[in-house]
Design a protein around this nucleic acid. Structure first.
Lengths: 146, 146
DNA sequence: ATTGGTGCAAATCATTTGCACCAAC
DNA sequence: GTTGGTGCAAATGATTTGCACCAAT
């Protein structure tokens, strides 16, 4: 994966924030688990392995900060907690998620065929779209075959 | 609006549930506020006007039941609580939402141009889609003009 | 020294649950 | 009289906050 930690460090500095040991550890945990959509609690558990003194509140505060700086992106799979994933600078418009109604597995899709839809909506002139969020619900092969 | 309370009553009966005074009051509150995306707390406040003895837990339990019976549909606008809207039987695939990043207003769109997208995904044979959920973020005219 | 950042414990807020009681078939 | 449904209060669980302390400029 092509994650530029330096650019993230710069983004923090630009806004007057520091890349502390804790923040770095949290960032690492998220990077090491790309594609896993970790919850704050899960990130906390991962970080504690290398950095046992960290507090859960710090994880929450850091995630809030990272989201605000567009370093991560908050997801909601309706499972009782927020989840986060790295915002790879490469693809401005993020991918979407297929959520299995049976096992809860989340699969990523990279298709970005929403331009038509956005165009249709903007054409009416009542709304300026800057982002979108799409979730598909259904059944993955494993669950469908039962 | 063409809401068939009788059909909802039947749907409850079919599954062995009763349309109690409380459930009826909650249903009425939702119907009277179609398009408002009420939260449980807000529904509670509305219902209390006519039915002051009702408990908030009943509202939560009823909404859970209504969702399970497809009478309402749970929405998440990331504002700290779930919100609910009536599931009009007419349109099977629900409409989508435009969420203003400035004032938080939610506008509904009825476009349903996602068939292409779903087709693309299903064509790969790895996922059977049964539903989707689309949110657009941007700015409404009022906010854009500032 | 001042400022931002942290850890901890307590607070908050949405939602759920246990339980005694009520209502309908 | 049995069963589902309700109200209330207490429990839960995710997230936030107050505060004293720590670290870096």
């Amino acid at each position: 994966m092509d994650i530029n930690v330096d650019s993230i460090k710069e983004r923090l500095k630009e806004e007057g924030y520091k890349l502390t040991t804790q923040r770095r550890a949290i960032l690492d945990a998220i990077i090491e688990n790309s594609g896993s959509h970790l919850s704050p609690e899960e990130i906390y558990e991962v970080v504690k392995l290398k950095y046992p003194e960290i507090g859960l509140a710090t994880v929450y505060r850091t995630l809030q900060l990272f989201e605000q700086l567009d370093i991560v992106c908050k997801l909601n799979f309706d499972d009782g907690c927020n989840r986060y994933e790295l915002n790879s600078d490469s693809n401005d418009h993020h991918h979407h998620h297929l959520i299995c109604l049976n096992c809860g597995k989340v699969i990523e899709v990279k298709l970005d065929l929403l331009e038509n839809l956005e165009y249709e909506i903007e054409r009416e002139g009542k709304f300026k779209i800057v982002d979108h969020n799409v979730k598909f619900f259904g059944y993955c092969i494993e669950c469908r075959d039962k």
